[in-house]
Design a protein around this nucleic acid. Structure first.
Lengths: 242, 242
DNA sequence: CGGACTGTTGATTCGAATCAAAACCGGTGG
DNA sequence: CCACCGGTTTTGATTCGAATCAACAGTCCG
């Protein structure tokens, strides 16, 4: 019901899906419980069995896993409009953590509510399924990123990805975008140590490719960055029915 | 129609889903076009727009991406009962290759056929959605594997994963299982060079943890391997509605 | 002001890549 | 039957990218 909560979801879904009036009304009729969190709070914990899904209305979140010997790996970054734990609707048990990066406005939607709405709106169900598939596609690219790209390319690739995704929902100003992430977490995204993350970032700055400040990044030369990273946006599936 | 084709799918789906008689009849009524391929053939190519999904009836396949500068990364390994390109049903364009590892018996099912059956059987649709979510969960673990585990742990983790998945569909004899993969491809799974893959495998053999032959592996001490790899099977979601 | 966290720097070590060559293996054809 | 071929596995030597170790500086905040 609160228009602003649902609208974040509608904007995001519309990037990759054709939504008709019926779908939009169905989304607007969802009961969404609003909640506000600070930075670095656990939203949903590994091993838990959530009964609702979490929509990011404002702010940033990440999903991560910690290995048996305490090494952390970030699996994905999430932006407004994302439902990072949509998979919990059908998987039941969480196999990773969902954590806020920045202070967040979140909307929680009960599984029962989603089950019901997808049953009555198969087209919307397909759109949500598609969102989880795009999620999977981004995971695949991250496997390539940590598996086969050198540190510099790896970081460039990540920054372009986030820029493209934010651009699609209208949250960039040129090459600039907000992403309040520490170098520690950035390293955990890239499978690098903090020290090397720091040096790699300096290299990108030195090449005049990227500027950073506390709250975000500025991509100074997107063309050259894409060239460097070997970036191909296909995997983001940012247009409907592509 | 051909019972043996559908039964591979039924066996696999039943591992992670509760299927009722209606679901099973729906699967058995699917029109599945059978095809046989040799080893190392491209089943579906990156960039293509397939009109059907590919069920593995017999044999093994892998999905992989190649970076701009020619580095290959394997994203997943697939076993009988898997539909490795199920995501194409909703994503349209392939963002990676699907390739046979061994000679395969495949069953192709038209997208239209799947769309129709999922519309009429929402419970089956949920099961297929769930399969794609498990796919995604395995990708997440692979990100951790290449991002944060050392070569020895990494290889141990992969071998245990494949063993667990094959065991669930009844295709292991104790620690033994078939997986006809070259060290080149194994390296591409793990983000390692062939040389280092070879040495890592020798280390596992030296520890009397693993035996290999042309066609597969024998895990000599699963407990110790799991301990070494820090293996937690949760992410495989091998029980229904867990 | 002090403390906790984050960012930065330098020195050193180490795991894995690379380079290069040889051994092995199954298939093929003379 | 054996020579040969391409692909794969193995070995050794060397290099290199990134991790680790160890300080120190910067910043935010109570």
């Amino acid at each position: 019901m609160p228009a602003n909560l649902a609208s974040a979801l509608i904007t995001k879904l519309a990037v990759s899906n054709h939504l008709d009036g019926d779908d939009i009304r169905a989304i607007q009729s969802l009961r969404i419980r609003e909640r506000h969190l600070g930075a670095r709070e656990i939203i949903v914990a590994d091993g838990s069995r959530p009964g609702e899904c979490c929509l990011i209305v404002e702010g940033f979140a990440s999903r991560s896993k910690t290995t048996a010997d305490g090494e952390r790996q970030v699996l994905s970054l999430h932006i407004p409009g994302d439902i990072p734990d949509l998979q919990s609707l059908h998987l039941g048990i969480m196999d990773h953590d969902l954590v806020s990066l920045s202070p967040c406005a979140l909307g929680f939607i009960a599984h029962a509510e989603l089950t019901e709405v997808t049953a009555r709106h198969p087209h919307l169900a397909a759109a949500l399924w598609r969102e989880t598939l795009i999620d999977g596609s981004i995971f695949r690219e991250w496997i390539v990123n940590v598996g086969r790209r050198a540190a510099l390319q790896r970081m460039a690739h990540l920054l372009i990805e986030v820029h493209e995704r934010l651009e699609a929902i209208g949250r960039t100003r040129g090459g600039e975008f907000s992403l309040p992430i520490t170098q520690i977490d950035l390293g955990d995204c890239l499978g690098l140590s903090v020290v090397h993350t720091n040096r790699t970032l300096q290299a990108l700055r030195g090449e005049r490719l990227v500027e950073t400040d506390k709250s975000g990044f500025n991509l100074l030369d997107q063309e050259r960055l894409k060239e460097l990273a070997g970036f191909d946006r296909t995997y983001l599936h940012l247009t409907p029915s592509s």
